[in-house]
Each structure stands twice: as C-alpha cells, then as structure tokens.
Amino acid sequence: MRILDPHIHMTSRTTDDYEAMYAAGVRAVVEPAFWLGQPRTSAGSFTDYFDSLVGWERFRAAQFGIRHHAAIALNPKEANDPRCREVLTEIPRYLLKDGVVAVGEVGFDSMTPAEDDVFAAQLELARDADLPVLVHTPHRDKLAGTRRTLDVVRESGLPPERVLVDHLNETTVALVHDAGMWAGFSVYPDTKMDERRTVALLREYGTARMIVNSAADWGRSDPLKTARTGHEMLAAGFTDDDVDQVLWRNPVEFYGQSGNLVLDPVPGFVAGEPPAPGVEFEGSSVLRGVRA
C-alpha cells in the first residue's frame, strides 16, 4: 500500500510517527499551514513557521524516507487578528518555493467579514501562483459554512478541479461532489469521520475525486488513519487498485497540478538502515538511531 497523506501536521508529531508511517506505506505527505494551539501574535511568527515547513520539517521527514510538501496560507481563525493579517504580503514568495504544492488551509472558521476578505484574497494568490487550493470547512455550522465556501470559490473563478474541500461528512459531501471539486475526508479517532463511514461514502460516491487524510496534529488524532482506511476498504471488498487510487493516485493528481510534487525515493535512504550520513554518533540531530 503506497500512501500520500494529503493533509497532516507533522510539525506536531514525533519521529516515532514518521517511522510508523513509513512502515505503513506512507511515502509522501502534504503539511498545510494552520493554527497552533496557542494563537500567534505577529507576521514574524508565521514566517518562522512557514520557514520550518519548507526547511526543518522537510529535512526531518527525509530522514525517515518520506517526501514532505507544504501548503502555505494564513488560516481562517488567525485571519481575524489584524496583527496576523500582515503576513499576506509575505505569502507570494513562499508560494514559489520548492515543494509548496497548494495554497492552504484557507476557508472559514467563524464566518466573519475578515475571514471572507482573507479567503478571497488568498484564492487570488493561488490563481496568480498557478497553484491548487486546500479549503478547510468549519467545525461549527458546517453545512451553511460549506455552502458559503463554495460560493466564495465560484466567485473567484478558479476551476473546480483546482480545489480540494476538506473535512467533509455525510451532510456536506454531495454539495462538493456535485460542484466538481475534490472531496476530502479527515479520519479521526472520534470526531470528524471514521474508517467505516468513509468507506460507506466511497461506496456511494465512487473513488474518483475522493481524498482521505489523517489531518493528524497536536490534538487527539492518528497518523495511520490513511492506512487503516485502506485496510477497511479492502475488508469491504474494494480492490488494491481502488485503494491505490484513493490513497495515492488521487492526491498525486490533485497536488500534481502544482508541478511541484517530488515523489522519487529520498536519495541515500535505505529502509531498515540508518540514513547516510552516519547516524551512529550522538548529536542534536534527529538522525540518532533511525530505523524505518
């Protein structure tokens, strides 16, 4: 089973997670920029975070044989803080970086006028940078929020196939599917979706334009939920090819529209062996004792 987790916040995860993900078949990830548990208070806090997404985190992932990509954006919650909105002028230069495969996560949190403005502005940045967009749908008032999300996307004039609308469930999938956009499902231990309900929706809507992610972060979540959903698909009678489509080919097709996915194996990485350069020395790097 080869897996591209199209939405996971690895900054919040451990090296044990990277090892377990590699063992489960994860070979590539996309980490969208989002909020931390603690609100940020300045644009500089964002640029350090973005630098980390295209720098240190990519290095860390590569030590475990996993190709790390990023989506860059000002998230909807922090779009409400004028001190944070200043980062919008910095975002275009990040959209040029190697391995930045989308603008995201954008969308709504509380559906405020500030969120409206920042959402629309960033859809324009995506069009200028010729990148697809990862859209977050709100946890509260989800159905109304998803409708409004689709309106804003339509007004932007972006082609529907360039847009992935995430965190969908039984009540919101049809709207997105009918709009011709990509439908994303975040499989969580007890909120959002679970494996069985996701498989039921795959049966109802088919495997085209359907995307499954773990959305694992600093909250209760599981970076192996993509693999677990794949196994649940097989148990429900889907073929290996169906699983490959949903867990690999679909996210590759969506983010591949950026022309910026890197999917060849990490050079020098051998599964089960410490990565080169030698890791047998004590040091302050993540290289200590790595095993795949």
């Binding site: 230069r93 040029l96 190697d98 910026n260 890197v262 050079p267 020098g268 080169a276 350069p277």
Partner: peptide, 21 residues
C-alpha cells in the same frame, strides 16, 4: 527558487555522497 525544479536536485557525486550533503 525554481532551480531545483528546472536543474534537478541530485547529488553531484552519487556513489560516495548519495545524499549530496
């Protein structure tokens, strides 16, 4: 910024330095 995509990213001396570090 585009150099990796257009020029390539491989190591200059792959068999002695597979990571290019």
């Amino acid at each position: 910024a585009l150099a990796g995509r257009r020029a390539g990213r491989g190591p200059l001396h792959p068999s002695v330095d597979p990571t290019g570090v």
